[in-house]
């Protein structure tokens, strides 16, 4: 049963993955497609930005967050906390763990496909977060069949599934032989131009449209240019850091796990190599390539860092996980 101790959403923590195919398995379950079952693992398809920093004091000691009671002034453990909802008239309604559980969606290991719709009918506005589905069963045949059938028919599957106490509306999209799962926004989360108060479409002079069309043509290309889409902030931050490191300026050596680790990964998430999984389950000779030039910066260092971190993480006591759950803002849906 989901409880407040769980994280509220499938949110990969920053600074965890880096090599092109190392992704985290967040959930395992079954796609149900009529009476056909396809066992799958849900994997992250987006890496965190490499701009994450940790909080330290002026001497480089690692800092962390603590909750204190505003009345008593003393430190609280996570188990001392409850969630309260403030009504419009200022009343505080306390919702207990049990009550949260009573309304939570029933745990289920199924991604139930409800209908197949033309891909072009799903507006980009709806797409929230992408994941990959990797075949998990003994045979990948049903997986390949679903991907191939969707590709042939130009249809994507709309369905829903429950992960970590939340029910997600999803689209399953074939992507070069791999199934991608995109979480979708609900219709009531999307505004309309009318609701925003945008003006009505007036008649515009054809000559003006032609002028714009010409300007668009002049800049039209077939493909994206990856170099234009690189993380400028991360690059600038990285070069500043490198320059300072060279001059031994403000370089600190926080000791122990506490210091090296504070952007933790999902407690139970295993890091796996997506390419390896696909290669194993789809074919020994499968051709798997990543998009060109989407390598993250400073790979070697990052990898060393991650390995060191996972080595120290192993030594930690499970009690640690409990403290991680609270977030700055207590969101529940």
């Amino acid at each position: 049963m989901p409880s407040r101790k769980r994280k509220r959403a499938p949110e990969p923590e920053p600074e965890e993955e880096s090599s092109s195919a190392r992704v985290r398995s967040l959930w395992s379950g079954t796609i149900t497609f009529g009476l056909v079952s396809i066992p799958v693992d849900l994997l992250t398809a987006v890496r965190p930005r490499q701009t994450a920093m940790k909080l330290v004091d002026t001497d480089g000691h690692a800092l962390g967050r603590q909750y204190h009671c505003s009345k008593e002034g003393k430190k609280l453990d996570y188990d001392d906390l409850v969630r309260g909802y403030e009504t419009d008239d200022g009343k505080m309604v306390v919702i207990t763990d049990k009550e949260f559980e009573s309304v939570a969606p029933e745990m289920s290991a199924d991604i139930e496909l409800r209908s197949f719709v033309p891909l072009e009918q799903v507006p980009a506005l709806y797409f929230q977060k992408p994941y990959f589905l990797a075949p998990a069963g003994k045979s990948a045949k049903a997986y390949v069949l679903l991907a191939e059938t969707m590709k042939r028919t130009g249809r994507v599957a709309i369905g829903s599934f429950v992960m970590r106490g939340h029910e997600y509306l999803v689209a399953i999209v074939p992507d070069n032989g791999v199934l991608r799962l995109d979480t979708l926004r609900y219709a009531d989360e999307i505004r309309t131009p009318a609701a925003i108060g945008l003006p009505k479409h007036p008649k515009v002079a054809a000559a003006k449209v032609t002028q714009f069309a010409k300007e668009i043509e002049a800049l039209t290309h077939k493909e994206l240019k990856i170099a234009e889409l690189e993380d400028q902030d991360a690059k600038k931050l990285q070069s500043l850091v490198e320059a300072k490191q060279k001059e031994r300026d403000d370089v600190i050596h926080p000791k122990g796990a506490e210091a090296a680790e504070d952007t933790e990964g999902g407690e139970s998430a295993k890091v796996i190599d997506l390419m390896e999984v696909l290669r194993k389950s789809l074919s020994k000779s499968a051709v798997v390539r990543t998009a060109e030039a989407s390598e993250p910066i400073n790979l070697a260092e990052r990898r060393a860092q991650r390995e060191a971190r996972s080595a120290t993480a192993k030594k930690k006591t499970p009690a640690k996980a409990k403290r991680k759950a609270p977030r700055k803002r207590a969101r529940r849906s």
């Binding site: 800092l63 967050r65 909750y67 409850v82 309260g84 506490e258 969101r331």
Partner: peptide, 22 residues
């Protein structure tokens, strides 16, 4: 999304966040 305040279970007082040395 429905937002909640974190409260101290015992006295229902809102919690304060402190940043501390680990």
């Amino acid at each position: 999304s429905i937002r909640f305040h974190l409260l101290h279970e015992k006295d229902k007082a809102p919690v304060e966040q402190h940043i501390v040395r680990k």
